[in-house]
Simulated assay, not measured.
Amino acid sequence: MEPDQAQPVTIWAVSDGRAGIENQVLGLAEAVARLIPATITVKRIRYDAAFDRWPTALKLWPDRMLSPDSDRVEAPYPDIWLAAGRATLPFSLRMKKRSDGKTLVIQLQDPKSNLSAFDLVIAPEHDEVHGKNVLSLLGSTNRITAEKLAAEALAWRGRLSELRHPRIAVLIGGKSKTHDLTPERARAMAADIRQSVGSGSLLLTLSRRTPDDARSVFHEILGDLPGLIHNGHGENPYFAFLDAADHILVTEDSVNMAAEAAVTGKPVYRLAMDRLRGEGKFARFHDALERRGIVRPFNGRLDTWTYAALNETARAAAKVVEVFSAKRQGKSSLSSPPHDNGEVASK
């Protein structure tokens, strides 16, 4: 399965730079680099404001449409192109031609484009993308490993190690196209969280998407509890919270946060939000997590249970290496659907 090579494989982890998207491609790139020698370069694609909202089909000259703060997509191209997000598609769709077919082109999430333009598409199950070159995952790829959690926790050990158990990590999202967090919902949610913490400790992190009025509610109701509330300023304790937690509560608006929490193997609870649209893909995702015994709806009580920790990033990385090796050998590893089974630089 390991490619026969003298030099490390070059990987570009490409996104628009938003943390939730970049962590998916970077997490997968790092997982590939744990399997084969590789160097990773982070690329961030950003368009001039005049072109940013243009659909992919109209971005016919994407290089000319980039903003000054965007990375350039120029030769020499990488051995493996790992990309996610709408901003990357104009380049992903052209990468096979630009590289004369030498670059392995992998797109994460649903590209909503011709699947044949990619060597491999890695999409969440709940997006219901089907094709012989599609690998379906439960949730999304991420950067969570036991080693990373332990390393990130070191800087916070002094502040977290003395906190009483149970330690309740609460990961709060916010308003999106599908969900909202009104003050009323935040108040009810905070009251249940306060009850569940009991004599333990609270580790609460708020998203940039958390509305200001909901943010104020959480501080009002939970601010006096032992623990820590992170507002997004200064060093981020997110990984340290996951490492220190005995239980993890996650708002239902974020696939990434739920998938990352599930990697820990710790009990994960889903916090209900105000829904702006039909349940759709989020319902399919959470239903799948519940069927696997990973997530339970939060009702103010805390239980303890075990499950096989979610390790979809490792599964995706193994598939990437398999497809890359087959490409190097001039073979196809995708004759049947793939469902069955470093060093980081920023330029």
Rank of each mutant, 00 (worst) to 15 (best):
L138T: 09
H247P: 00
K331N: 04
S346R: 15
E343C: 13
F298C: 04
L35V: 08
L149W: 15
R291G: 00
F298T: 05
S346V: 15
S325E: 04
V255K: 03
F282K: 02
G234A: 07
K327N: 00
L171V: 14
N133H: 10
R46H: 10
D69G: 02
D224P: 00
H286Y: 15
L276E: 11
L108K: 03
T304A: 12
L66N: 08
T10R: 15
W156T: 05
G139W: 06
I168N: 01
V217K: 05
V42N: 05
G234C: 11
L135E: 02
R277P: 00
G158H: 13
Q107H: 14
G200L: 10
A259D: 02
L206K: 12
G158D: 09
K43D: 11
K148V: 08
P90C: 01
S70K: 12
I294S: 03
L138M: 05
R291N: 07
V321I: 05
E22P: 01
Y269V: 00
L271S: 05
A244P: 07
L66T: 11
L149N: 13
T103S: 06
N133P: 12
R209I: 04
L249I: 06
K112I: 11
A186W: 14
R164C: 11
L160M: 14
R143Q: 15
L242W: 08
I229K: 13
V323N: 04
A308Y: 03
D213A: 13
L26G: 12
E152H: 15
Q329R: 13
R159I: 03
R157Y: 12
L135S: 01
V255M: 02
D303H: 14
P124S: 10
V129C: 00
D127T: 06
V25L: 08
D303L: 09
M95P: 05
A214E: 02
N299S: 02
K331W: 05
Y269N: 02
Q195S: 12
S136I: 02
H130E: 10
K97N: 13
L181C: 05
H126T: 03
I106H: 01
R296N: 05
L163P: 15
S325H: 09
T56F: 00
V320S: 05
L181R: 09
